[in-house]
Write a protein that binds this DNA or RNA. Structure first.
Length: 596
RNA sequence: GGUCCUGUAGCUCAACUGGAUAGAGCAGCGGCCUUCUAAGCCGCAGGUUGUGGGUUCGAGCCCCGCCGGGAUCACCA
């Protein structure tokens, strides 16, 4: 049995035997003993003093004596202040290592047909411009959280809601019609999403010129903004779109399809994917119908001008508009429709929205609205809210050209990776194709790790100039350790060493025990990551594990060890470490190269 | 103004959810490659955890006040 559980049960029994108090083992906590003290696991006895009515030291000693007598695996203990440090038999840790070594699925729980089904929405781009750094954090978090949920025995449906309709895409369409000269991705060689994005920027420029011109002629700012021909043109296109105007719809479809093929390239490069894609052009009508049903059933109010509102003041929120006076729907309405469709399509146990914290209020409102509309799952939706990515000079602003483009960023990372690799010259014997594959893995590992290692809730800073480090607490450092282990295992295989059998006559060194214990906490890390929706937990664990391994690696030789049993044991230790690294990194969407 | 988030070394981030002397990396300084990958290892230096109270055997973490940063409160998405 798991030693942690044995100790908690033991402490519970000790409290009963010594002080006649009953405490559920679940309410007793153990922690790994800090390295500067002797022992493996530590129980803090301060909470028990009210039972024992004795000093912390004496209480800890009494419980320690009890545990040593009652539990075979506990071979000793020491007491420092109120901390009971328990020494576990080294044989136990050998057993633990071997069990983990032989479990190819170590740390993960497989899902079954009965497992909860979690739908994770992430990415959710607009179709008027390419993906940027902010989207990257979103995509990486969404993908990683999906993997983490899967590893905890959930079925996961990754979904993407594409905002393919609205005034923004009409702006790009307007500018393209006006000055596009029939430019296409094919005849220009430009990536589709970038091409459409360029026209969006063009529209903005044109619009500003027009507004400035009109203001010079004496119009107020508001008048000028409303009367700028470009804006009028875009609005007109939106109305035509809603009217199913053939020409507008065809252009819309054409330009969106360019964007989609561009997005596909970026998604593929990032290594993210989706099981089901929804389009707002297909869900917004469902939302509109829901809003109208709400009016009929007296849940919402229709104002004199025809607009539809939800009054949420009794829920501590404000008034929220659901349909404009012209009957068109807003973002919130679309989200209601999308949610309804999803629950029709899937037997969802939990809905997760990976969306930035700027929309906290939106999801609070969405949850209440769905609840009012009678959907019992409304209250249960979970907004996985994450912080913004900032640049050294503040936020990204498209108008100021400070947006970090996703494609450029990835390409830049690959360049750095290539340059670093070439300088080190460890891959000279490989083909170009093999090398490029390794550069790509390292570059993406660096980028993903860099972004995922910070607590999702927090705003994070990204400095493109300094680029991303490849030393220290970084993705490449973790990957490097993995590659290093693979190198050892390759050499062991080449010399026909066999190390899969269990070894018994080994007394592990302190550093080896620390490594085994670190490995053994992996399953707990996987569940913590899911409970907290935090890939950062996994990344930080990777770093600790790898640091521990490198210390071991430096201190002890594996293949030159003369004692066969010890060599086998160390190979098992190394291989298990590599397995855990690969598993942990896979939760972050990072692939480990076999050499680097 | 209301609501929510946030403040830890020069910089970027941790701290097992209230436990031992707050830890890493980068940047700086100094060591370690005829030995399994030096993208590594070891050492030095760097802190009144924004601030003042409170709760507790114990607070970076919980509560209250203040100060600084951010988000949001649209017939935008």
């Amino acid at each position: 049995m798991n030693i942690d559980l044995q100790i908690r049960n033991g402490v519970s029994a000790a409290l009963k035997a010594l002080y006649s108090e009953v405490l559920n083992p679940d309410n007793i906590q153990t922690q790994l003993t800090r390295k500067e003290f002797d022992g493996d696991l530590t129980v803090v006895v301060f909470p028990f003093l009210r039972f024992s009515k004795k000093s912390p030291e004496q209480t800890a000693s009494e419980i320690g004596d009890y545990l040593v007598n009652e539990i075979d695996l506990i071979v000793g203990f020491n007491v420092v202040k109120g901390f009971l440090n328990i020494v576990v038999s080294p044989n136990y840790w050998l057993e633990v290592l071997y069990a983990n070594f032989t479990d190819s699925n170590f740390g993960f729980t497989k899902s079954t047909d009965d497992s909860p089904l979690v739908m994770v929405e992430y990415s959710s781009p607009n179709t008027n411009k390419p993906l940027h750094l902010g989207h990257i954090r979103n995509n990486l978090l969404g993908y990683s959280v999906s993997e983490i949920l899967k590893a905890n025995g959930n079925r996961v449906v990754k979904t993407n809601i594409v905002n393919d309709r609205g005034i923004h895409i009409c702006k790009s369409m307007y500018a393209w019609l006006k000055s596009g000269k029939n430019e296409t991705p094919e005849n220009s060689g430009k990536k589709g999403d970038h091409l459409v994005g360029e026209y969006y920027v063009q529209f903005d420029k044109l619009y500003k010129q027009e507004v400035a011109g009109l203001m010079e002629k004496g119009m107020s700012k508001e008048e000028a903004e409303a009367n700028a021909p470009s804006m009028k043109g875009a609005r007109e296109m939106l109305l035509k779109w809603e009217d199913n105007d053939t020409e507008v719809r065809e252009l819309w479809q054409k330009m969106n399809s360019w964007v989609y093929s561009g997005f596909d390239v970026t998604y593929k490069k990032l290594g993210v994917d989706f099981d089901k894609i929804y389009y707002e052009s297909e869900t917004y009508t469902v939302g509109r119908d829901e809003a109208l049903r709400g009016v009929e059933e007296g849940i919402f109010e229709k104002h004199d001008d025809g607009s539809v509102w939800a009054n949420l003041e009794n829920d501590g929120l404000d008034q929220k508009i659901l349909l404009r006076s012209d009957g068109t729907s807003v973002y919130m309405t679309q989200d209601i429709g999308t949610a309804k469709l999803r629950y029709n399509d899937y037997d969802i146990s939990k809905m997760v929205y990976v969306v930035g914290n700027e929309q906290n209020y939106h999801f609070q409102v969405l949850s209440v609205l769905l609840d009012k509309l009678g959907y019992e799952w409304g209250k249960g939706l979970f907004h996985f809210s994450y912080g913004m990515v900032e640049l050294p000079h503040g936020k990204m602003k498209s108008r100021e050209g400070t947006v970090v483009d996703a494609d450029d960023l990835v390409e830049g990372m690959i360049e750095v990776s290539k340059k670093t690799s070439e300088e080190l010259g460890k891959l000279d014997e490989y083909s170009e194709q093999e090398k490029n594959e390794i550069y790509r893995k390292i570059a993406l590992g660096a980028l993903k790790y860099f972004i995922l290692k910070v607590d999702p809730k927090k705003t994070m800073l990204f400095n493109p100039e300094e680029s991303i480090d490849f030393n220290g607490n970084t993705g490449p450092f973790v990957l490097y350790t993995y590659a290093r282990i693979q190198s050892i295992l390759r050499k062991a295989r080449e010399t026909n060493i066999e190390w899969s059998d269990k070894v018994n006559n080994v007394k592990p060194e302190a550093k080896e025990l620390e490594l085994i214990k670190k490995i053994n906490t992996f399953p707990e890390v996987v569940s913590d990551a899911a409970n907290n929706f935090s890939p950062a937990v996994v990344a930080n664990y990777c770093y600790d594990l790898v640091k521990e391994f490198n210390q071991f690696y430096h201190e002890f030789s594996i293949l030159k060890e003369e004692n066969d049993d010890i060599m086998k044991f160390r190979l098992q230790l190394a291989q298990t470490t590599a397995l855990v690294i690969a598993h942990a990194m896979s939760l972050l969407g990072i692939e480990c190269p076999e050499r680097m």
